[in-house]
Amino acid sequence: MTKPVLEINNLQTHFFTDRGEIPAVDDVSFSINAGEVLGIVGESGCGKSVTSLSVMGLVPNPPGKIVGGEILFRRQEGRDKAEDLVKVSRKRLRAIRGDQIAMIFQEPMTSLDPLFTIGHQIIEAVRNHRKVTKKQARAKAVEMLKLVGIPRAEEIVDEYPHQLSGGMRQRVMIAIAMSCDPEVLIADEPTTALDVTIQAQILELMKDLNRKKGTAIMMITHDLGVVAEICDRVVVMYAGKIVEEGDVRTILKSPKHPYTQGLIRSLPKMSNRDSRLYSIPGNVPKPGSIKQGCRFAARCPEVFDRCTQENPELLNLGEGHGCRCFLYEKEGKIVNV
């Protein structure tokens, strides 16, 4: 089997604040294969955005810092030679960023520089990484706009962000991200700020690019609908830790972890419209507030004594399905010790 394009091992990203050191991402490991769409799911504050920013080297510092672990990136050619993005120089990281690993963000309305034309912002991305003339880069910009389905690309290229709608701006963001044919596209809640119809269009576009260009996508979302729509595999995060991972069918059809089960039960269903919508009792704990035991223990319906005393390990339940819960200790074996 070929090695994954991106492999994250024991990543720890902490924030150093006045209230002490907060482990936003605590010992997280997962990998993305070439051409795969991996979903990272969780509630706000579970560390999924910080994980993605860690890969890009864009964690705001101060207060954030990667304190441990490795982020191995392997290019398509020479896949055996891995670069650890935690250790590479800033210059090397800049060369990778936007070229081989690109990112799009949640807020298309504020993610484009208001003072520069759309064309300029795409041209900039191209010329950061490719030795091309302005004219060639401009042609590339128009081509990218057409690729992401923007009508009148030749005119839009000279317009400013404020002249476009949110959905169009997100398309432009995707055009910028895809302009250098990255191996990995990180999408941090790319549809959250958009209308439902536009959401579907953007997801369709991303799926299409994934299929056509073979770009691996790391899709960060809190929306299980998005996961069902586009992802091949899913990682569920809770309070800075991975609680469950597996392929999308397994996770959605037969989730094991009580948290994942809760998430799926909270989805509204057409079949029982009269009953109250389920919600997981309690709130997400503040990162770093739980020092001992399972982080979900306080909200877990299946909690027992051991949960508050020991830290559960990620168990392998077979076929790449992992779950961090004592309930399955007999059937699974510990994945990472």
């Binding site: 864009l58 060369a95 960023r97 690109a102 504020t110 520089d113 208001p114 520069f116 950061n128 910028i176």
Partner: peptide, 21 residues
């Protein structure tokens, strides 16, 4: 702001991030 993060994500140089944008 978000757009500065976007420009950094493109791999632009610090000088471009700070002065131009």
């Amino acid at each position: 702001s978000d757009y500065i993060r976007t420009i950094e994500a493109k791999g632009s140089s610090t000088l471009s991030v700070i002065y131009r944008h």
